[in-house]
């Protein structure tokens, strides 16, 4: 007998998690630019205003310092705000509140002040939005201590990890990839739609996911790059190479063990990122492999990432700097010969 799967887009999965948590806990509320009637520019808050009213879903002025700071102040009072920074690229106008306050107050208070809040933000490129609207900045946030930083890549994880983030007593930076939201006005990506149970559930923060098992090489990806890695693994399979793909899902905390266990099995490591290459996610994973599993490696670690240039506008220029399945597959083939 066939059962019908319940399919949701990434943004509907997120909005459903938020709605269910708002029903569970009256202290949860949402604020940010265009989170009300518009439902969030990337749809993460759709339907919430209609359901919960404007006391709990607040459209804000274009004043990121004011409303992210207000979320911090409200969280210190025991509320559980979810605040949206529309594009992560806009962090420049409000980073003081994020890293000097949200990330540090719990520590500076010796744990006496908790900030149970979620800063959710849209990341990623691939649709010609150019240098100020296409970054992921994963490493920028993950570098600074005091924030959990997560980046789910499937509708199932977007819902489950959003629920976990809201229930977490620490500040959580929740990065969602714009192209994985299932927006009608972007390229339709298959991975932006997935099976999502209706009932509330949680997916733990800080656990990587082995999305495809393999024996010859480990490819670690994040968000869109996980999906590109899976596509690369399919290309490689036809060439007789068995690639294991890990979706990191959470930058902080980082699930080192899942990566190291895989490296101990495959003895080869490729890391793929949609952030800048230097001082980034790929460097961090490579360093961990070198520190903790160097003698397991049969070849040097290979990194694919944005080659330290701002994200360009013109389609072919952007394609040139973004890693994709073919580039990953080519890198693996080369690596297998080392």
């Amino acid at each position: 007998m066939q059962t019908t799967k319940r399919m949701l887009t990434g943004n509907k999965a997120m909005a459903e998690a938020i709605a269910q948590e708002m029903e569970r806990d009256p202290n949860v509320f949402v604020l940010g630019e265009d989170v009300g009637k518009y439902g969030g520019i990337f749809g993460a808050t759709q339907g919430l205003l209609e359901k919960f009213g404007d006391k709990r879903v607040l459209d804000t002025p274009i004043s990121e310092t004011a409303f992210i700071g207000a979320a911090i102040g409200a969280a210190a009072e025991g509320m559980r705000p979810i605040v949206e920074l529309m594009f992560v690229d806009f962090f420049g106008v409000c980073m003081d509140q994020i890293y000097n306050h949200m990330a540090k107050i719990p520590y500076m208070s010796g744990g006496n002040v908790k900030l149970p809040m979620v800063l959710m933000t849209g990341v990623g490129g691939g649709y010609s939005d150019a240098a100020q609207h296409s970054q992921t900045l994963y490493a920028t946030f993950a570098h600074l201590p005091g924030m959990k930083v997560v980046a789910p890549s499937t509708p199932y994880d977007l819902k489950g990890m959003m629920a976990s983030a809201i229930r977490d007593d620490n500040p959580v930076v929740f990065m969602f990839h714009k192209t994985l939201q299932g927006l009608g006005w972007m390229d339709q990506v298959d991975e932006s739609v997935g099976e999502v149970p209706e009932e509330a559930y949680t997916v733990p923060l800080g656990k990587a996911n082995v999305v495809r098992e393999g024996t010859d090489v480990t490819i670690v990806g994040i968000q869109m790059m996980t999906h590109q890695a899976v596509a690369a693994a399919k290309i490689l399979e036809n060439q007789g190479i068995s690639a294991e793909v890990i979706d990191i899902r959470s930058l902080v905390p980082l699930d080192k063990e899942t990566i190291l266990n895989s490296v101990r099995k495959t003895h080869r490591l490729v890391v793929v990122d949609e952030d800048y290459k230097s001082y980034g996610f790929t460097s961090e994973i490579a360093a961990i492999a070198a520190e903790e599993a160097l003698y397991e490696l049969e070849a040097p670690v290979k990194r694919l990432a944005i080659p330290d240039v701002p994200i360009p506008y013109s389609r072919d220029l952007e394609k040139y700097v973004l890693p994709n399945a073919q580039k990953i597959a080519d890198a693996v083939v080369k690596l297998m010969k080392e």
């Binding site: 207000a70 102040g73 409200a74 000097n100 107050i105």
Partner: peptide, 25 residues
């Protein structure tokens, strides 16, 4: 309910957040 910080003007939005929380509650 006291806090302080070393960044000029940064406490203003946080106080507004406490005021918002009072209103919410």
């Amino acid at each position: 309910k006291f806090s302080c910080g070393g960044i000029v003007a940064a406490g203003i939005p946080q106080a507004a957040g406490a005021a918002l929380a009072a209103k919410q509650k």
